[in-house]
Design a protein around this nucleic acid. Structure first.
Lengths: 154, 154
DNA sequence: TATTGTTATACTCTATAACTATA
DNA sequence: TATAGTTATAGAGTATAACAATA
C-alpha cells in the first residue's frame, strides 16, 4: 500500500518534540538498550546487572546500600537483583565486621574472571552504536550527559 | 552512623561506568522523567502521552500506525494508549476515507485548547533540568543525541 | 502476502508501604 | 530515630504471539 499523506509531512512537522532533550534522551537510550541486548544475547546480563557487577568489581566489599546509591537503585529493588546475582554464583554476600545490618559484596572467582570479557563486550557495543560520532563528540556527549544527571539524585 | 569505607572511594573507582554513554544516557533520562512527573503532577500526562498528543496536534489526521512509527511505539502498545486518550476525550478516532483498515487521529477541541499550556509546561520542565547548560551546550546535546538514535529504528 | 488495529501475556524497571533487625 | 535489608505490590514501557479485517 502507498504511504498515506501524513507520513510525508513528518520531517517538517515534528519540530516541537525534536527540540526536547527529554524526548531525544529517551529515544537514544532505547537504541543503546536494544543494542546492549544484542551484544549480550548469550550472556544473561542486562545493563543493570552489568553495572552492578562492574561496580562491585571496582569496589570490592561495597555494601548493598552504597551500591544502590551509586547506581540510583532503591534498596527495595536492589534486594531481588542482589539475590539473582548471588543465586547465579556471580556475587557473594558477607556480613560486615562492625555493623550487623550491612552486607558487603564481592564478585565470585567466576565473575571476576569473566568481567574483562564482559567489559570488552560493553565497549564493543558502545563502539558499534556510536560509530558515527568522533572521539571528541563522544567525550562531549558524555560530559553533557553527566552534567544533566550528576547531583540530581537520579 | 558513619559512612562505611567503600563510599569514600567512589569517585576514583567508577571510571568504567562513567565512560559508558549508555549508562549516562539512562541516568540522565531518569532525571528528566522524574522532573517531567513533577511538572505534570496535576495534568494526567506522561512523557509518552504528551508526545502522542503533540504529534497528533502537528499532524492532524495521522494514522495510528504512522504515529507509532514516528514515536517508536509498537502497534500492540499503541492500541491501549490510543484508547486511553480517546476515553479521556483528548483524541478522536475516525475511519480513513480510502483504506478501511486505517484509523486517523485528531485532537479534540479540549485537547487542542490545552496544548499550548502543556507545551509551555514541557519547556519549563526542560528549562529547569537543564539550567546549568548554556543554549549552545543544549543545542550540542540535542544534535548529538539525535545522531545516536536517528535512523536506528529505536 | 502484507498491513492495520486489537487482545493477551510476560518481563524489566521503578515506586511505595510495611516489616525486622540493628545502630 | 534512622539505617540496612527484605517482601509484597503496583504502574509504566517494551516485547512477542495470535487474530480479524482489509489491502
Amino acid at each position: 500500500m502507498e504511504k498515506i499523506e501524513s507520513r510525508e509531512k513528518s520531517t517538517a512537522e515534528r519540530r516541537a518534540l525534536d527540540s526536547l532533550v527529554g524526548y531525544n534522551l529517551r529515544r537514544a537510550s532505547v537504541v543503546m538498550l536494544n543494542d546492549f541486548e544484542v551484544e549480550f544475547a548469550e550472556v544473561p546480563l542486562r545493563p543493570t546487572t552489568f553495572a552492578m557487577l562492574a561496580t562491585v568489581d571496582e569496589n570490592p566489599g561495597i555494601s548493598s546500600a552504597d551500591l544502590g546509591r551509586l547506581l540510583g537503585i532503591k534498596s527495595a529493588n536492589m534486594a531481588p537483583l542482589i539475590a539473582e546475582l548471588a543465586n547465579r554464583g556471580l556475587i557473594e554476600r558477607r556480613g560486615h565486621a562492625e555493623d550487623k545490618r550491612v552486607q558487603i559484596l564481592f564478585l565470585t572467582a567466576e565473575a571476576r574472571n569473566a568481567m574483562p570479557k564482559w567489559r570488552q563486550q560493553a565497549l564493543r557495543h558502545e563502539e558499534r552504536v556510536l560509530l558515527d560520532l568522533t572521539r571528541s563528540e563522544r567525550a562531549t556527549l558524555l560530559r553533557l550527559l553527566r552534567r544533566v544527571w550528576i547531583g540530581k539524585g537520579g
